[in-house]
Design a protein around this nucleic acid. Structure first.
Lengths: 205, 205
DNA sequence: CTATGTGAACTCGTTCACAGCT
DNA sequence: AGCTGTGAACGAGTTCACATAG
């Protein structure tokens, strides 16, 4: 809600990366990561036009976004995929793995705990917590479920820096509320003639 | 991404509700719904100040938001809870139940199918689809899993208007990507000194 | 000649502050 | 007097268009 985001301690450069840009950088990074695999003749550069198209934004916005990281493009050519990946990773702080604690091991929490998708992106689920005594002590996906009361101590001790709260309601920084998303879609839906499917929410890992 | 949202066909009023306002109206509605229960002396009106505080926004923004629906407040008094609930519901199109199809019945999809939270807010899960032949034909939460190929026909026939895609990757209108949210948090985290937990994602129903 | 990097214009959303109803 | 409703000021974010580097 603040809009701007604190400037980095990094060397020289780095002004202050806008909130909206940070969100998109994560998207660009994912596209770049899944790029080396596919391209047959493994091109090592990519133009703003091409990357922007993949990300679903226009090229001017993409260039503006990348310019916050510094000048890593080559005029008349494009961006070196390796360098760009490296720089975005560095900016997002993804070059070092983040330890994640999962709170709440009901249906949803268990599904999340079993998902392999996080590890590949530098997020390691390091601790599980629940308030329900029936669940505490059990093991889910190879990790013991601990009492929520121990969370502060355990997180401090094991270096957990991010928490994922998978419970019916919770205090949060970023709130991914499915019902809310659905209501927003319902609004758009109600503005239409009333045909068939007019909107979708995708829940991915 | 368009910013403005089409004007309603409703009677007279209604200009064009901004995207950001629509998102918040859903929040206000939830607060109003869970209000009659708690308040001991069941007050029937609420001031912009109070509702805004509950929603975590300032009162000016709340009033501006509500003004898009028309003038349903009473100056010097506040808003009638019943009327306001009714009007927001109408605006969001929640006064009529929406039929939802769930696509993808892996861990996450099954968890979502079993969640009771949607029905209470006017969303009825009416059909389940999956592309995996091993899953098609099974039954989850009382509904048969159908082949994704039949989705267009079934959705048309049963009046499904919203789809929830719970698969590793998907085409979407609104994309709730946990890894992405985590990367954004990781960025904020990397801007800090490196204490303990500094951010959290809450996944709720 | 091509594609980046960026100041400047513009658009959308938020905040302010006060007129006006009850 | 109190609280809503809203025009106007402000600020963030996006788009434009072009100077500049390769």
């Amino acid at each position: 809600m603040t809009g701007q985001v604190g400037g980095a301690r990094e060397s020289g450069r780095a002004r202050a990366i806008p909130e909206a840009t940070v969100a998109r950088l994560a998207v660009y990074l994912r596209i770049l990561s899944g790029l080396g695999d596919r391209r047959g003749g493994h091109r090592s550069t990519i133009s703003s036009e091409e990357l922007a198209h993949s990300a679903g934004v226009n090229s001017a916005k993409l260039r503006k976004d990348l310019s916050f990281l510094g000048s890593y493009g080559i005029r008349g050519v494009g961006y070196d995929v390796g360098t760009l990946t490296e720089e975005i990773s560095r900016a997002l702080g993804t070059h070092q793995a983040h330890r994640v604690a999962l709170v709440g091991l009901g249906n949803l929490g268990q599904a999340l705990a079993g998902y392999p998708g996080f590890a590949g992106r530098g997020f390691v689920i390091s601790a599980l917590f629940d308030a329900d005594p029936d669940r505490v002590g059990r093991e889910v996906s190879g990790l013991p479920v601990l009492d929520i009361a121990d969370a502060p101590r355990v997180c401090r001790a094991s270096g957990v820096t991010i928490g994922v709260i998978a419970v019916p309601a919770g205090v949060e920084v970023r709130h991914v509320d499915l019902s809310l998303e659905l209501q927003i879609l319902a609004f758009h839906e109600s503005q239409r003639d009333g045909g068939t499917v007019s909107g979708a929410v995708a829940v991915t890992s």
